[in-house]
Structures are given as C-alpha cells and as structure tokens.
C-alpha cells in the first residue's frame, strides 16, 4: 500500500490563511523564503499584513518583536537553520526575555533537507529553543496535525517555536483528531517497550512497532509534538508500564527529544535509548539515503528496542 503524502508546509499555510480570516491581528513576516516556507500564500491574500524583510533574518525577528508589543500575533518564518542559529540572540533578547507573542515557524529542519548539505541541515534547533525560558517548542507530525496545532500556537500567550522538515510526510491522521498543545498522544498500546517519536520520526516508530511484532515484542507508541512543556505524566506512566523507552527524532541526540524525555524521568529512570543524529554534521545526499546512513529508520528503532527488551 502506498502512503498518502502531504507537505507540512501546506498544512501550515492553510492554517495561517484560516487564522488570517478569523483574526485581524495576525501578521506574517518572512525573510526571502516566502515561496519555500509557503507564507507567500498568506501574503497574497492579506498583502497588508505580510512583510518580506529580504535576506535579513535578524532584522525580521526584531521587527516581529516590535509588532508583538503592539498587540499583533506574529508568525515569523524562514528555514530552521537561520531562524534559530543566526537569530539566537535576537530571539533570546527581543522575543523570549520580554515574553512576546512571536511564533517562529521554521521549515527545512533536519537531515532530510538532503542535497543542500550540512550548512542547511539544522540538527540543533530544538536544543537551542528548548533551553530558552518562556519558549514553547513544537515539532508537528503531519500536515493534518499542524493544521490543528497552529491555531493553538496562535492562542498561546508567549513565544513558540514550531519546526518542520522539507520533505512531504506520510499523512497519519484524519481531520481534527484530538491534538492538544502540551499533551502527548498514545498512538498504539503495548507492554514490552515504549517508542516515543516526534516530527518526521513518528511514522518510523509506527513501522518499528510492526517490525517488533514479528519478534513477539509488543511496543507502545507515543507521539510527542510538544517538546516543551513536555507531557511528563504520560512519559512517567509509560516508563512504569513498559520499563524501557526508545526516543526517535530527526535532530542531534544532544538536547532534543531524547534529552527532554530523560529529564522528565529524572527521579524515576528506566533504560532509554536515543535514536537521532549522532554528534556530527550532516552531508549532501538523497533524503532516503541520509536517514539510513545516520541511523534514523524504523530498523534502527527496532534494533534499539530489542536491545532494551533483552536487558530486562
């Protein structure tokens, strides 16, 4: 069976347009990537509330902060590498510290960006944003989920970072399932091991569950879209239930989902393996080859799970 695919950026821009109709205070800013991030769709309809700052991301972030002090809900988009890496100080000083209503929605995160190579493969953004006080961090799973999440991000008072990849992603969910900012979602139940995925890796955790079935391992699968604040209760319950956890993310194994889950388990640790990009920069290549080379597949998740179950 071929999976139905849809790009998260399409879900994002549809949600933005919907919001734009509902709320005149929605303002969108971009930095010469409006066609790639697809904010241009908003800009075409609401031209007076869309501002392209050219290749000047730092200025864009500062201006977004200024808009927010005037009561606007600002969506600021560019690629993840520029949004968080280039603009870290602007986000820290002018957005997170004053706790302003700026929603940084970044695209082209992760190694699956492919041919552009390490300069564009942002693998540290979750770590950078998660450590900032006041910042909410979300990595939506598919184009349907992001349509549910973006209005909640708009409603949240304060800064948010929303991250998505470049490639089309399998559509996992129907319209308007119950996605709540800050709440994890149990996708499949199981007793032997818990697989926690975020973003592009959620579909891989579901595939891994099927692989594990063949070995008579019954895996629980949890989706975490909100990495901060993270749903500690669901993580702790899962740890008690299955006794071991595999996390999977298209991000450095330092500072992302795996770290956040470990932190949530601080007083109640269980064996945990983190699937993610090891502490290296990426390289050019086809997305499907890169995820294999850097260990981001269902097979890698399954292998980690089997190892944990063996240890029990």
């Amino acid at each position: 069976m071929t999976e139905k695919m849809r790009n998260l950026r399409d879900g994002y821009s549809s949600a933005l347009i919907e919001l734009g109709h509902q709320n005149e205070d929605i303002v969108v800013v971009d930095a010469d990537l409006a066609l790639s991030t697809k904010t241009k769709r908003f800009g075409t309809i609401f031209s007076n509330r869309f501002f392209d700052f050219g290749v000047a991301e730092a200025n864009m972030m500062g201006a977004a902060a200024g808009f927010a002090t005037c009561g606007k809900i600002v969506f600021a988009s560019t690629f993840a590498v520029f949004a968080t890496g280039r603009c870290y100080d602007q986000i820290r000083q002018s957005i997170a510290y004053p706790n302003l209503n700026v929603k940084i929605v970044a695209t082209h995160a992760g190694i699956s960006v492919g041919g552009d190579g390490a300069s564009h493969q942002m693998l540290e953004d979750i770590a950078l944003m998660r450590v900032l006080p006041n910042m909410v961090v979300v990595t939506p799973t598919d184009a349907t989920e992001i349509e549910d999440i973006i209005p909640q991000v708009a409603k949240h008072q304060g800064p948010c970072y929303v991250r998505m990849g470049r490639a089309d992603s399998p559509v996992l969910f129907g319209k308007h399932e119950d996605f709540t900012l800050g709440k994890a979602k149990i996708l499949e139940d199981g007793n032997d091991v818990t697989l926690i995925g975020t973003g592009t890796m959620v579909s891989e955790t579901l595939k891994a569950r099927k692989l594990l079935k063949k070995d008579k391992i019954n895996a629980q699968v949890i989706l975490i879209h909100t990495l901060k604040p993270i749903d500690q209760d669901t993580i702790k319950k899962a740890a008690r239930k299955t006794g071991c956890i595999v996390t999977a993310e298209e991000h450095s194994i330092i500072g992302g989902l795996g770290s956040a889950v470990s932190e949530a388990l601080d007083m109640h640790p269980v064996p945990l393996k983190r699937i993610g990009v090891p502490d290296v920069f990426g390289e050019s290549g086809e997305a499907k080859d890169l995820v294999k080379k850097y260990g981001l597949t269902a097979e890698n998740i399954g292998e980690a799970a089997r190892e944990l179950v063996r240890l029990k």
Binding site: N48, A65, Q93
Partner: peptide, 23 residues
C-alpha cells in the same frame, strides 16, 4: 516598551512598532 541590552536590536523592534502603527 521592550527589553534591551544586547546591542543592535532596538532599531528593528522600532521598525515593527512603526509598521504596526501604519497598519
């Protein structure tokens, strides 16, 4: 009106405020 301290950012913030005023 805005937290400052790390230099070079206030003019950008002022631009956002000025754009909001026009809008």
């Amino acid at each position: 009106e805005i937290s400052t301290g790390s230099l070079g950012q206030g003019l950008s913030v002022g631009i956002g405020m000025a754009l909001a005023g026009k809008l």
